[in-house]
């Protein structure tokens, strides 16, 4: 098999980029799961809402693109808080399965909401940009074309993850988040307002998902209400891959998943159409071989 180095490099970069986007969503899953033991099924849909907000902000209200994205991040952060308060908070003491079903319901609701209010058809995201050419420009090194947009996305992803780490590991609220994920009852005894911290977690993880969504749409510009479904699931898989509950694990898991996906189709181009299936197979293998994930801690259920 002869590998075209151009395609190899491009795919590797693409894999890194997609992996970074998975990572942005995966940290949300992992933070919420760490605190509430809940898979917030709706993150994929929050991501799509982020795309819609930015798109309509730029096209309908005619905000400049950066401002539209900022508004979108704020809007989704608020959406995250609202979802938690309305849908999950009433079920804090119910069986975990009820919360999971509700999360599915919320995801389904957001999808339906988008169909009704934004329409079921694909929309061209690049309409949101004043200067569309940026999405198509490339660096040319010899005969290798490297799309500029990939580097922009990689850069923003890195900055966003850096800010997240600073928040989680260097601020008071971050410490509270980590404390809660270790032990909710004790933390509330320490005088921390658990609900506020959970709300903050939802806000920050929703905003990250929206940011991932916007960047996703820059790279794959055609979007519709179900666009978030597959990336959402894959991001969850990435979180499990890295070890659910561990933020570093989510980042590593996301990037690895993105790169592995791209490498498989680079090596076996005939499997291209089955790309979306790999992640689930990786999930099964990981859970059977190393249930705690790459960086997670293994917990033994007390009998």
């Amino acid at each position: 098999m002869s590998l075209n180095p151009t395609i190899l490099i491009q795919n590797l970069l693409n894999g890194l980029m997609v992996g970074g986007l998975y990572a942005l969503i995966a940290v949300g899953y992992t933070m919420v799961y760490g605190i509430l033991r809940l898979i917030n099924f709706a993150f994929g849909d929050v991501m799509v809402m982020g795309i819609y907000f930015a798109y309509y902000g730029a096209t309908l209200i005619r905000l400049s693109f950066p401002l539209a994205v900022t508004v979108s991040l704020a809007g989704t952060a608020l959406l995250g808080i609202v979802i938690d308060r309305l849908a999950y908070k009433p079920l804090r003491n119910s069986p975990r399965i009820s919360a999971l079903i509700t999360a599915i319901g919320v995801s389904f609701f957001i999808e339906s909401f988008a169909v009704v209010f934004f329409g079921p058809n694909y929309k061209p995201f690049l309409d949101a940009l004043e200067n569309k050419t940026i999405a198509f420009e490339s660096f040319v090194i010899g005969n290798v074309y490297l799309p500029k947009i990939i580097f922009i996305i990689l850069g923003i992803t890195a900055i966003a993850l850096f800010i997240l780490f600073v928040i989680v590991y260097r601020t008071k609220i971050g410490m509270a988040m980590r404390a809660i994920s270790a032990d909710i009852p004790t933390t509330s005894l320490m005088g921390i307002n658990v609900d506020n911290v959970i709300g903050f977690t939802f806000a920050i993880s929703s905003a990250l998902a929206a940011l991932a969504g916007v960047m996703w749409a820059l790279r794959y510009p055609s979007f519709y209400p179900y666009t978030g479904f597959v990336p959402g699931l894959k991001a969850f898989i990435a979180a499990v891959f890295g070890g659910i509950g561990s933020i570093g694990g989510a980042v590593v898991g996301g990037i690895l998943l993105g790169v592995i996906e791209m490498m498989i189709i680079t090596l076996f181009p005939t499997l291209m159409q089955y790309k979306d299936a790999f992640a689930f197979i990786i999930l099964i293998v990981i859970l059977l071989v190393k249930p705690a994930g790459l960086l997670g801690k293994r917990t033994v259920e007390k009998v």
Partner: peptide
């Protein structure tokens, strides 16, 4: 998640 994945 895994069963959802398999149905996909």
């Amino acid at each position: 998640i895994a069963s959802l994945g398999f149905s996909e």
